[in-house]
Design a binder for these strands. Sequence first.
DNA 1: GTCTATATTGGGATAGAC
DNA 2: GTCTATCCCAATATAGAC
Lengths: 205, 205
Amino acid sequence: MGKDKKLNAEQKIIEAAADIFETKGFEGARMQQIADKAGINKALLHYYFRSKDLLFEKVFLKLAGKIFLKFIETFNIEGSIFDKIEMFLQIHQDLLYKNRKFPIFFFNEITRNPDLMRKLMLNLEISKKFQEITKQFDQEKKDGIIRQDVEVSHLIVNIISLSVFPYIGSPAIKEIMKEFDLNYEQFLDERRTMIAQFVINSIKV
Amino acid sequence: MGKDKKLNAEQKIIEAAADIFETKGFEGARMQQIADKAGINKALLHYYFRSKDLLFEKVFLKLAGKIFLKFIETFNIEGSIFDKIEMFLQIHQDLLYKNRKFPIFFFNEITRNPDLMRKLMLNLEISKKFQEITKQFDQEKKDGIIRQDVEVSHLIVNIISLSVFPYIGSPAIKEIMKEFDLNYEQFLDERRTMIAQFVINSIKV
DNA sequence: GTCTATATTGGGATAGAC
DNA sequence: GTCTATCCCAATATAGAC
């Protein structure tokens, strides 16, 4: 029986809060519900985190930080640009698949409060990572491996758009697919290989 | 001086509510703020719409209906599949450009309450429209104009992903671009032609 | 550190005059 | 149909015992 046999209150709160906030959003979440889920009293939330705002910020930065860390790790993949894109998409898709509720939550919260994005970037040095990958891709372009009219910033946004949007738009896609007896889970699965193919076709010379 | 010299209260409320809901979301919006913006009293909101829920549903379906109507109109464009994609993207981009706050609002609200999507579809017969365009694209595939491995449902989702995501993710993209002194507005503008090129490169034989 | 009880404010909703 | 005044519950936050 290690120290995690019984998590301390602070840790239990953070886990419960992450779950409630991710599902309901900051505005929709209730402190009572978080306390219930953590199995502790509501007053304890304020004892540890002072206010809903502060609890949210801590939880948001921790959760988003964890996910973005895994996300930017993939920038270090070695190999040709095509290998990089395929590997990047594989890992990225896995990450999304395991954190389906995260994208809409994340983008909604940073829309409500863009300062959260700024704070997240300071924590993770995201800009630096983007600069690195941009430089790598630009080199591949100079070497004539990909089309000369491919603009790297757009390529990156395109890759992310193609993999993230199906999760953000899932209630809409699901509802439309239901009409035609199509399976959303299968649809997501097909995209795992399809997206890489789609991107590579569009950039190769 | 026509009848719109002074809008009636109901109309003023709907316009004010659309604006507040779109910016703050259902959970974040306040009835008081809507009343203030409409220039009327809070009690009048309840007189006309009974509750916040009912006001929201009416406003959401009206706003989303208006935008989706313009969106699905583009399905009727005539010409080759490449013309269709280019025209569709042009109109779609204009629509998004004029309704920047709509995408994240829309997807957040249907995530909170998927039934809204179902109601919207019933109002607009969206499924039927999707079926029509799917059939058109499938024909182009049979005719050998586009790659045989292009799956039509994915192609449609890809096109929408590429144009909608930059708006959903705007606070993130803006923040990252700021670090490199890049201009988000210019970025959006570049995408107008880039996306069509990207898509067409990826599907042409 | 954790609880119960309570304060306080915010916000949706209603009563009733005009 | 529009207003002022008010109700009432929900939700954040605090006080204080243990």
